[in-house]
Design a protein around this nucleic acid. Structure first.
Lengths: 115, 115
DNA sequence: TTGTTGTTCAACCATATGGTTGAATATCTA
DNA sequence: TAGATATTCAACCATATGGTTGAACAACAA
């Protein structure tokens, strides 16, 4: 049986799986912003955006600083590291497969020439 | 307004957001396998696993070869490339921030010493 | 103090998701 | 032909998700 632990990976991947949330991250990559500022860019209620922000915050992809009544959100891409590493593992897997295939083909071509 | 296009990214991230599906990918990284083989490793019905496989297939993370009544699944990590690139973009963003912060701190330390 | 602004909370709704079971279908085997 | 095996299809269910609206609340501005 394969072990399963609800990890930080889940939170990050789930957060990032939603296109609106990816757009919010892109928005915050250019500059920190308040909830209202962000909401203006999206075709949905401020409340909906607020919810998305909570999800991003929960995944630690976004940091919140409360200044008076304003909540300033900032991108915290460091939380993406683990997920990026996970993906990279598979990227490498894929590259190795390609390399192996390539080697095999080269080998076959050589043998073909010898005959 | 921010544009939104339901892309391949969505499919990959959504597929990968589920821990069971990540486990299936890990399983397939070690060897190709039939639906039944995979299902044996998981504490759920074969049907549930079959559904997960369809999702992975839909995201092009898995390739299916039908041989008689058997369906052999193989990992196709190449579909992960776009998603990995997306993440890498943010990883780089983060590293640049850190570097900038580091430079700033160094600068301040220098000034401090001069005084 | 009174209003306006920035934000969350709460309730609700439709649809998606991850699981189940039971049946149908197709292929191999005796 | 008659099982047994491998898989999908279909219906169903509980819960999660992404959205809405309306109210509450806190902080700033007049």
């Amino acid at each position: 049986m394969v072990e399963q632990q609800a990890s930080q990976l889940d939170a990050v991947f789930k957060a990032v799986a939603d296109p609106t949330r990816r757009a919010i991250l892109a928005r915050l990559a250019s500059a920190d912003a308040r909830v209202t500022d962000i909401a203006k860019d999206f075709p949905m209620s401020l409340n909906a955006v607020s919810k998305h922000l909570r999800v991003l915050e929960g995944a630690a992809l976004v940091r919140r600083t409360v200044v008076g009544r304003e909540h300033v959100l900032a991108l915290d891409a460091s939380a993406m590291a683990e997920a990026a590493r996970w993906m990279d593992h598979y990227r490498r897997f894929w590259e190795e497969r390609l390399a192996a295939l390539d080697a095999l083909m080269t080998e076959r071509t050589k043998k073909g020439r010898k005959k």
